[in-house]
Structures are given as C-alpha cells and as structure tokens.
Design a binder for these strands. Structure first.
Lengths: 106, 106
DNA sequence: TTTGAACTACTAAATTTTTAAACAATTGAA
DNA sequence: TTCAATTGTTTAAAAATTTAGTAGTTCAAA
C-alpha cells in the first residue's frame, strides 16, 4: 500500500478549520492582526479554551504569534488559509441554496 | 453575542476534509469519477468504513453519487473542494519547508 | 509584590472513527 | 422463477480523539 503520511499531515491542516470557534477566529483575523484579548472579547470564548484553540492553530502553522508587552498578537501565516476558507464558505452557500430550492419545490 | 450558526455550518464543510481517509478520497476523485470498488481498492479501507466516509461527504455536499447496475460512482460536486484542498496542501508544504530549515540550522 | 494577560495540566463530556455482523439491492445462471 | 454471487449500506458497540471547563502557573509591567 502507498504511504499515507502525506494524507495525515494534510488532514491535520484541515482540522485546524474544522471547528466553529476556529472558523470564527480565521474570519476575524482575515484582514488584520489581533490581540488575544480582542479575539476573546469578540468570540466570547473562555480564556483557557481560546488559548488551546490558538496554540493548536499556531502549531499547525495556520497562525503566527507575536508578543508585545503583556499582550500576545495573532495573525494568519498566509493568505492561502483565507482563500481555502472562502472556497469552503462558497460550497456551503451553494449547498444551502440547493437545499432551499428542494424545499420550495414541495 | 452575534449569531454563530454560520460558523457551525461552515465548520461542518471543513470537517469533511479533516480526516486522512477523506483527504485521500478527494485526492483520488480530483480529476475523475470513480466507483466504490475502485476507491476501496486504492485506499484499502474496510468497506463499511469507506461507505460511512463517503456517505458523510455526500450529505455534506462534497461528493455526488450515481448508481449504475451494481456499482456506485462518486465524484466531487464542485471544483472548489479541490481548490480548497490544494491551498491546504500548499500550506502544509510551506510548513514542512520551514521546519526543515529550522532543523538544518542546528 | 501585586496585577493583568495568557498559558498549561488535568478531567469529564461529547464527538468521531473503526470494526464486525446483519441487511438490502441488483444481476445472472440454473 | 428462484437461488446465489456481488456490491454496497446500516447498525451497534468499542476505541480513539476532541472539546470545554476548572484550577493553578508563568511572566512582564507597574
């Protein structure tokens, strides 16, 4: 059988997007860097939980972090994450539209 | 707090890519439709398990299916899935390269 | 030396994944 | 027609992973 390591590594990147909180984080960081505190305020997620999500995203190479004084700032490492995310969003919208049409036809 | 329904729906699409077997399936179906049997032979996954992964991808709107005689054929519903997947792969490759450089510098 | 900001370790709950076995649908031969 | 072979699905249980929450820790600044 072929080597599947690449698929596991690849899916690890995808897992970084496979959670509503993490999707929201990517959405928020789409256009600018933001501090931990700001992200927490916007998402309303518990600090410890947010920290876990962020550190997971950093270790997956999705986010980069930078410390300044007491604050930690986060940003997307590459535009490609936002693009991938946008593609998925478009797939979602298309599916929702199809679904609506099905319902309308009843 | 804002409505987060969209983030949950969005993450559901992403979850369809967040598994090594499902990534392999998307890889395989990238350029052409394929039968269940072919997919099973290539992936080596247990029939019942493969069936579950495929049906999950169909219900998430990632794959479409078509029956012909005894055989079931699967294909990507849209090019966008392949594009999103490719973006992620590129992020992975970039990360691996960075990682290699770090190791080389030691 | 205290305060604010964020991280870590740990646990319980929830979700996902795998496996085995039973089930259903289609085809073709007896 | 009926039976058997092939193809794939469904179900249920066990195993593995992910997530949220609590409590405690670290670290820099005032």
């Amino acid at each position: 059988m072929r080597d599947k390591t690449i698929y596991t590594l690849h899916s690890n990147i995808c897992k970084a997007l496979a959670n509503p909180i993490r999707i929201e984080i990517i959405d928020i960081l789409n256009d600018r860097e933001m501090s931990f505190g700001e992200i927490q305020e916007i998402t309303g997620v518990l600090k410890s939980n947010l920290s876990q999500h962020l550190s997971m995203m950093v270790s997956n190479g999705i986010l980069a972090q930078r410390k300044e004084g007491l604050n930690m700032y986060f940003r997307l490492t590459t535009e490609k994450i936002a693009i991938a995310c946008r593609m998925m969003r478009e797939v979602l919208i298309e599916n929702l539209k199809k679904h609506q049409e099905l319902i309308k036809d009843l």
